[in-house]
C-alpha cells in the first residue's frame, strides 16, 4: 500500500540528466563552505528536531569565540511522518546547517555563490529574501531573518541569531539552513521526494533513489511514532533522562558558583553529556506529542521542563567557557 508513491521512481528525471544527485549536492555544499574556511562536522549522533539543536550550533554560538562550521543534520520530527505516502513530507529530513560566527559582511553574496555552486544559474531564476523570523522556545533561542524563495520554493532558512539558551549573543552569528531534499527535488525536477536520485553509478548509470534508501524508514518509524511507541515507557525514559540531567546541572551550578573552584575541575565537567540528556528529553517529548499523549494543559509544562534543561546547560556552558 505505501509503495504506491514509488511507482514513478523508474522514470528518472529525463529532463535534466546532468542535475546533481542528492549526495553530489551535499558534496558541493560541503566543498563550497570548506573552501571558505568552515570546519566540516559529521551529523550529530543523537536525535534532534533541527540542525540548530546539535551542540555544534546550540553551544558553539555562545560566548565570544569565532567559529565556522557546516554539517548535514538528519532532523527528526515524528509528527510530520506520513508513512512514506505523502510526496512532500518526511518524518526525518536532512538539513545542511551552517554557522558563521561572526557573519562576514558579504554573507548574502556568499550564500548566492553557494547556490551557483549547486548549478543554479541565478540569471534564469527568481530569488527573493522574504521575512521569516525563527524561534525555538524550548531552547530559549530566536533570531530574525528570511526564508529564501527560489521560483516560489523555500530552499533555505537564513537567520541572524540574537539569543540562544536565554542568553544574548555577542557576536551575533548567521545560521544558514539548506533543505537538502527540497533543493534536490527542485534541481532534479521530480514531484516526489522519493524519486530523488540519491546516487548514480558512474559506470553503469544505475541509480539509487531516495525512496530506495529511506522509504522503509519513513514507513516503519511512522508506525512506531504514531501507533506502537509505548507511552508509559516514553514517559519513563523522559523522566529518567530529565532526572539525570537535573542532577548533573545541580552539580555544575554548585561547582561554578563555588569560590576558587579548581579550573581543571570546571573544564572537565561533562556539560556536553548533560546537553545530550536534554536532547533526549526533547526527542521523547516529540514522540509523546506524535502519540497524542500530551494534553494541551500538560504541554506548556513539559516544554518548560525541557527549556529549564537546555537553558540551564547553556548558562553553565557559557560559564565554563568563560572560566
Amino acid at each position: 500500500m505505501p509503495l504506491s508513491t514509488i511507482e514513478s521512481s523508474a522514470v528518472v528525471s529525463p529532463a535534466k540528466p546532468a542535475a546533481l544527485t542528492y549526495q553530489e549536492l551535499l558534496f558541493r555544499l560541503q566543498g563550497f563552505w570548506a573552501a571558505r574556511g568552515c570546519v566540516l562536522q559529521q551529523p550529530y549522533d543523537v536525535e534532534v528536531g533541527a540542525g540548530t539543536m546539535a551542540p555544534e550550533t546550540f553551544l558553539r554560538v555562545l560566548g565570544p569565540k569565532p567559529y565556522r562550521v557546516g554539517y548535514a543534520q538528519p532532523s527528526r520530527r515524528p509528527a510530520d511522518g506520513r508513512y512514506g505516502e505523502n510526496p512532500n513530507r518526511l518524518f526525518k529530513h536532512t538539513q545542511f546547517q551552517l554557522i558563521l560566527k561572526p557573519p562576514p559582511v558579504n554573507v548574502q553574496e556568499l550564500y548566492l555563490e553557494s547556490l551557483e555552486a549547486l548549478g543554479i544559474d541565478l540569471a534564469q531564476h527568481d530569488l527573493k529574501f522574504e521575512e521569516d523570523n525563527w524561534e525555538w522556545p524550548a531552547g530559549g533561542a530566536w533570531g530574525v531573518g528570511w526564508q529564501v524563495m527560489l521560483d516560489g520554493l523555500e530552499i533555505t532558512q537564513f537567520t541572524y541569531f540574537q539569543q540562544c539558551g536565554g542568553l544574548d549573543l555577542d557576536p551575533i552569528c548567521a545560521e544558514l539552513t539548506y533543505g537538502l531534499e527540497r533543493i534536490a527535488a527542485f534541481l532534479q525536477d521530480v514531484d516526489s521526494i522519493y524519486d530523488i536520485v540519491w546516487a548514480r553509478d558512474p559506470e553503469t548509470a544505475a541509480v539509487v533513489t531516495y525512496g530506495d534508501v529511506r522509504l522503509a524508514e519513513e514507513l516503519q518509524f511512522s508506525v512506531y511514532n504514531f501507533e506502537l511507541a509505548d507511552v508509559s515507557k516514553l514517559w519513563e525514559h523522559f523522566n529518567s533522562y530529565e532526572a539525570e540531567a537535573r542532577a548533573l546541572l545541580d552539580q555544575a551550578n554548585a561547582l561554578f558558583a563555588k569560590e576558587g573552584a579548581d579550573a581543571v575541575e570546571k573544564r572537565r565537567f561533562p556539560l556536553l553529556a548533560t546537553y545530550e540528556l536534554a536532547l533526549k528529553c526533547s526527542h521523547l517529548f516529540n514522540l509523546l506529542d506524535a502519540r497524542g499523549a500530551i494534553s494541551v494543559t500538560e504541554r506548556v509544562g513539559v516544554i518548560g521542563r525541557i527549556r529549564a534543561l537546555a537553558v540551564g546547560v547553556a548558562k553553565a556552558y557559557a560559564m565554563q567557557q568563560g572560566s
Binding site: P87, N88, D126, K128, G152, F186
Partner: peptide, 28 residues
C-alpha cells in the same frame, strides 16, 4: 510577480518551478 527579468527560456524555467510548488501545495 518576479524580482527579475529573464528571457523566454528563463521564463519557462521559472513558470515551471512555481507551478511545481503550487501543485505540491494543492496536492497537500
Amino acid at each position: 510577480v518576479l524580482n527579475t527579468q529573464v528571457d523566454d527560456e528563463g521564463e519557462a524555467i521559472i513558470r515551471h518551478g512555481n507551478a511545481r510548488v503550487l501543485r505540491a501545495r494543492f496536492k497537500d
